[in-house]
Every structure is written in C-alpha cells, then in structure tokens.
Design a protein around this nucleic acid. Structure first.
Length: 94
DNA sequence: CTAATGACCATTA
DNA sequence: ATAATGGCCATTA
C-alpha cells in the first residue's frame, strides 16, 4: 500500500547513523513540503522498531518527542555521536 | 462525510 | 529568552 506514511518510513529508515533530519526535511523528501505535522503524527504512532525515528528532530534544533521519552531519544542521539546540549542539537561543523 | 488530534513551523508580542 | 497565535497536513474516531 502506497501512502505518505510509507514514504516517511522509507526516508527515515535511510537516515545514516550520526545524521539527523528535521520533520520538515522528511516532509519535503516525502513530497509534501508542508506536511511536517503529519510526519510527526506518523512517527508518533509508529511501532516499527526497524525505523530509527529517534533521528528525526525539530527544525529549531530541539529534539522533540519520542515514544519512549524525549530523554531516551537524546541518549540515543548522543550514542550516535551527536552533540546535544540543553535539549538542542549542535552540528559538528563550525 | 465532519471533527479532532498531534513527536511541528513561523510569526508576533 | 519564553508564550501565545495562526497555519498546515495526514491520520483517526
């Protein structure tokens, strides 16, 4: 079944380790540049463990939410080499 | 079909 | 810096 949700899943699945995408970017890649809200909803209801939904963060650099808790999400992102401070992600580049 | 929901975004105060 | 407001879209009840 083809749907926006499936596209989102595919995109999130393809996010490499140590990299993160914003909800907006995922929406753009999915073909609905303004459907960031729907993206959040889909990931929120997502139960598929194959999808690293913890690699999707907000545009402001904040982490956003997570099924298992935002705290856990931050932990996972740190494990992947990301720099997070005060609930915000700082890019490695200067 | 309509209405409500939400892991959001941008603007304004 | 934070808080409130409006907009935006797929999904669900």
């Amino acid at each position: 079944m083809n749907s926006f949700q499936e596209k989102v899943y595919e995109i999130v699945k393809k996010i490499p380790k140590g990299k993160v995408l914003t909800y907006k970017k995922v929406a753009q890649r999915a073909g609905r540049s303004k459907a960031w809200r729907a993206v959040g909803n889909i990931l929120a209801k997502n139960k598929n463990p194959n999808i690293p939904c913890h690699r999707v963060i907000r545009t402001d650099g904040k982490i956003g939410g997570y099924n298992k808790g935002a705290r856990k999400k931050i932990e996972l992102l740190r494990e992947e080499g990301n720099i997070i401070k005060d609930g915000k992600r700082f890019d490695s580049k200067k």
